Amino acid sequence: MIHTNRSIPVAQIKLVLWDLDGTLVNSELDLAHAINAMLRQFHRQELPVETIGTYIGDGAPMLVRRALGDPNDEGFVKEALEYFLLYYREHKLDNTYVYDGIIPALHAIGINGRKQAVLTNKPVRPSRDIVAGLGLSEFFAQVYGGNSFDTKKPDPLGAKALMHEFGCTPEETVMVGDSQIDSLTAHNAGMWSVGVTYGFAPEGFKHAPPDVLVDTPAELAQVLGG
């Protein structure tokens, strides 16, 4: 079902920014496997996939920190992060897949020369590898990650950089994502926002509602297509 808090003027939208994990692709299992491999390496108890899923969204350093229980030893956190990233780099496409309906939605939303880009808090290298490996590269003019800029979402720096890159104003730009991080990013950058409930953290939208909330990729196409 489509829930509208504020109507988006679709005809004036020239740029659509997409979150990656939980929005375009379901990467939860591969991220969980990499986290649990890291926990095993450091003789920590493994965590349920569902628990790890609640830690996703703020970038790899925060994901690792949360999985470790927020330790004070920064050297240990850094070592654990390096192990996680090394493991994940090799296993990022073991189980990750594009959500059903996303490719038709991308076709529908990207008509009439409208630009689309990925803005994720995941590190940029695996992000670009996932986009390429799952056949999504043709849809995106740019892919930026959590280490592409000095700050991560919900700071608006990355969104503003993409708007500048493509010559678009906030009124001509919309952010699509599965968590309040994305709706807050849109708010902080003055953009429009669409939230998806099929991702990892839809409960956060209660605290930071997007302009439009949808349950399926087909509804994304309905809201933003054309």
Rank of each mutant, 00 (worst) to 15 (best):
64 V>G: 11
91 H>D: 07
183 S>H: 00
96 T>M: 05
126 P>F: 02
33 H>V: 01
82 E>I: 01
155 D>S: 09
208 A>V: 03
96 T>H: 10
140 F>D: 00
100 D>K: 04
114 R>E: 00
192 W>D: 11
18 W>M: 03
16 V>L: 07
134 L>C: 15
168 C>T: 15
175 M>V: 14
25 V>L: 10
104 P>T: 01
71 P>V: 06
182 D>E: 03
211 D>G: 00
36 N>W: 08
213 L>K: 06
36 N>P: 07
5 N>I: 00
196 V>Q: 06
113 G>N: 01
143 V>N: 04
78 K>T: 15
75 G>T: 03
115 K>W: 02
87 Y>V: 15
148 S>Q: 04
143 V>W: 02
142 Q>H: 08
17 L>V: 09
49 V>N: 09
97 Y>P: 04
204 G>K: 05
14 K>T: 01
48 P>W: 12
140 F>L: 07
34 A>C: 10
167 G>Y: 10
93 L>G: 06
84 F>T: 04
135 G>A: 13
88 Y>H: 11
112 N>W: 10
1 M>K: 14
170 P>W: 03
166 F>A: 08
87 Y>F: 14
32 A>M: 06
156 P>L: 06
66 R>K: 14
177 G>D: 06
39 L>R: 14
76 F>N: 00
207 H>M: 12
115 K>I: 11
199 G>D: 04
22 G>D: 05
19 D>N: 00
187 H>T: 15
36 N>K: 05
68 L>R: 07
